[in-house]
Amino acid sequence: MSNKEFFINRYAQLGWEFEAVESRKAIRKNIMNIKGKNLEQRFNSMGFHLQRIPFLETGYWIEKSKISIGATTEYLLGFYSIQEAAAQIPATLFTELKGKTILDACAAPGGKTVQLADLMNNTGTVIALDVRRQRLFALSNHLERCRVANTVVYNLDARCISKLGIQFDKILLDVPCSGNFVTDQKWFEKRTLQDIQRNAKLQREILSEATKCVSIDGELVYSTCSLEPEENEINMDWATKNLNLEIEEIECPGQRGLSSVFGIKLDNSLERSRRLWPSETQGFFVCKLRKRAGGH
């Protein structure tokens, strides 16, 4: 059995028939930067045809464009960011962000950090971390271009968050993951189950550390662009049983998370999470958790 057949067979066991899907280009308007600007008219004059993404307030699919969406003055002025549709979901799941202290634990290249700052209207504070120093350049560049003013960036491993000595109101955990075949054409050739298990272990370590640093009743949003349950439902099941976290209901597109995986029964609350099989978006998983009193 080839690697591809192996994974396709796994997806079938999870209830999804494989189909090749192409990623759709999407943008997100940065509301804080476009007040008083007639961006629609400017898009029209550049020959961009946009389609509103039904499940996002500020997201648009690019239907047609005469020029590169990443090479316009409006892009360079931070009026919008290029961000895949599913990747725009996690930051929108937090309740009331303005004035709060937020952690973006694995932040580079900064799409979600800028989105958080935008949702906060540049109030409060975002602490953005990334473990790889060379990725901080792209993150800072993104923040500067989009006129973000409420963010502090550290070169720090998300497994060492407590070194900062900060209790966060909310934490975004868009954790490093195995990715999926929509955004990586060679995905099936290079991924193995061992990679997935290694990533799942790293994700648990990050989750565990993040839970220590979120205040009681604070929110964590966990997301991956992986389709593999080890990195998604199985990790969330582990988190609810070991980290005093509970899964919250979310309003979000996608299929309800799986509460049974390869014959293993998981907590029923996993059905509150969402799994987006590739179709109009890339593959994605998102889950919102809340820290109960009595956790560590």
Partner: peptide, 19 residues
């Protein structure tokens, strides 16, 4: 860096506020 941010500025920050 506005006042809000300064509570979170440690010596080894990489980027803060407005560059």
């Amino acid at each position: 860096a506005k006042k809000d941010l300064q509570n979170f500025l440690q010596r080894d920050f990489y980027y803060a506020g407005t560059y």
